[in-house]
Design a protein around this nucleic acid. Structure first.
Lengths: 346, 346
DNA sequence: GTGGATTGAGAAAGCGCTTTCTGAGCCATT
DNA sequence: AATGGCTCAGAAAGCGCTTTCTCAATCCAC
């Protein structure tokens, strides 16, 4: 079957024997049209299986019903949960979501913003840690600024520095501190932390909150108590193996992974090494992604309202900026103690 | 800051003191342009932070660099994994992905296709079970057919009937049969199945494969051995509770959940009821989503090459139809025996 | 039965871009 | 010196739609 040109509004108009303007009015309900004409147009449109050309519509009249969402990795449950919230709100508002995964490549992130800008997306949502990198920040700002000047909305989840945009910010520092407090309360004194790349603001904040609270209780978190791994299940797994290899004897009594995803890898690594959780070592994560309550042992973590994070960001973007000063919504986390943590036996 | 009109190509051309045509040619590298003019245009474009209007480009006969992907639920790890594969291939080909979640609403699915058609997306990918419903099928075909006639590419993962489109098809039936065989091989004779909604072809196929193989071994799967739940973690959880409530004493020795996600819920329900896996009952799932190997006990399942499913579908869509007959790529699953299954003790 | 106010259909002007089509300028021929 | 053949910049014609703007037809009040 040859690629035949699309059915256009003109085809519909001709077939219904009315002018282009009338056809447009009928199909959009923009103005009142005599009943019989309206009927003719509707029928013709249905018969021809007419689908308006959204590009032409966007060009002519200016409605842009699509929003762009940029996250690091779609298959990460953390982003998936947030994206779920975003989509719900978007759908409720008749918006189409373009979801892009950058696979953690800063350049690709900037490139996506550029493309979205070209698409004249109504809004752009940035989800996930910002890269703490001046060059990246400048490149990003160079895309975002003209985009906003042209009327585009921008909102972000979980980042803030540099870019002056509306942000929904989970309380990473406070949550990590609260978790540390609980853990210390259980009697733990020797900790290790599985951290992600230090370039990510989320990592920095959670680390700061955790070690800060520890310090407040007179517990020092030394540099070699913090192991840096990739921000993924495998990253957590590898880092844990490394930790275990390094010091089989003076093991910490509690392991804090800065994300649940990493904690999952850690749990498996621990199990493989024959260590019981929380018997030999307690483990805690951060985020409360859906699956962690189904683990055995269920994971202690800091619950973040993930879907809400996405919803609020989308809402901010839809509402648009009231003033010119960037708004920040703070959502706090809540420590959820489950079976993966207990009192230290040693 | 007022929403000032966008910077257009005309602005660039004027600023560079050249014609529109020249500016376009420089920016697209379409034709050779004298070096100094080229330089002037590039500079002007950079200074004005010019971003071409993708809608105008598309309208003017240009390229449509966006593809639409429709799945049921972004936050389901199964879809997320497939979407990951899709995105990798799309990105490699310079395509932008619009990901839509239908939340399992057939109408919304059709509506999304319609929108994507309006966007003149280069391709539409349907991911996940089709609804076995004549009316839905007709509505879908009514959208898809004109879309393809207009030159649009369509491909699907995991569905086939009715719609005559290119499909990547996991071997649901064969995989389920192979799994059943292994399970019977372990000595199991009494089974229960946690099924999803019967409207979904995936459910039907897996059920058929499983019960067929059982039958081949002289084991009958009766109607009340099959419990229908929602296609989700909670669905699996509820269904399992229901199963347990129904018949505490003559419990099956093996439980097959048609998806891993449901199996995860089942595992938790079982644990809550004090049943050990695989001690008291074996559990198996289907899909091999990433997280199930990290469960304790790790889940026996049928591994599907999820990312590849997405990659292949995207590739088919990009390549376009060679002939007019829909192609089908079959990808087989592989049984992965893990700790959640063992020999029956009863 | 007229004038003025409505109502509603059609003509036409863009929206921002790509792409012929045209034609000016240049070099190499005879 | 005059002609032909190139190269490459600019003018202009759309792409498919929305939205004034215009104007004919209808309606009401007087």
């Amino acid at each position: 079957m040859k690629a035949r040109p699309h059915v256009t509004l003109e085809d519909v108009a001709r077939s219904a024997n009315v002018s282009l303007a009338t056809a447009s009015r009928v199909l959009n309900g923009t103005a009142s049209v005599r009943a019989d004409l309206r009927e003719r147009v509707s029928t013709a449109a249905a018969e021809l299986a007419y689908a308006p050309n959204a590009h032409a519509q966007a060009l002519a009249g200016g409605t842009h019903r699509t929003v762009g969402v940029i996250c690091h990795d779609v298959s990460d449950p953390y982003f998936a949960a947030i994206a779920g919230g975003v989509m719900r709100v978007a759908t409720d508002n008749g918006l189409l979501v373009m979801l892009a995964g950058t696979f953690r490549d800063p350049d690709r992130e900037v490139a996506y913003v550029s493309t979205l800008r070209a698409q004249r997306a109504a809004a752009i949502l940035l989800i996930g840690s910002a890269f703490e990198d001046r060059a990246w920040e400048r490149a990003m700002a160079a895309e975002l600024e003209p985009y906003r000047r042209g009327g585009g909305q921008v909102a972000a989840v979980s980042r803030h520095r540099g870019l002056k945009i509306d942000t929904v910010q989970p309380d990473n520092k406070g949550g990590a501190a609260a978790l540390a407090k609980e853990l210390v309360g259980l009697g733990h004194k020797r900790f290790a932390v599985l951290a992600g790349p230090r370039r990510l603001s989320t990592v920095i904040d959670r680390l700061a909150g955790f070690s800060g609270e520890l310090a407040a209780h007179g517990i020092e978190l030394r540099d070699d108590d913090v192991i840096e791994g990739a921000f993924s299940r495998d990253g957590g797994y590898e880092a844990t193996k490394q930790l275990l290899a390094g010091r089989k004897r003076k093991l910490p009594t509690c392991l804090f992974a800065v994300t649940d995803v990493m904690a999952i890898g850690a749990l498996t690594a621990l199990r493989e090494e024959g260590l019981s959780v929380p018997g030999d070592i307690s483990v805690a994560g951060f985020d409360d992604i859906p699956v962690v309550r189904d683990l055995a042992p269920a994971l202690t973590t800091v619950r973040l309202p993930l879907e809400e994070l996405g919803e609020r960001a989308m809402e901010m973007a839809i509402k648009g900026a009231a003033g010119s000063r960037p708004r920040t919504v703070r959502l706090s986390g809540e420590v959820v103690l489950r079976e993966s943590t207990g009192r230290p036996k040693r």
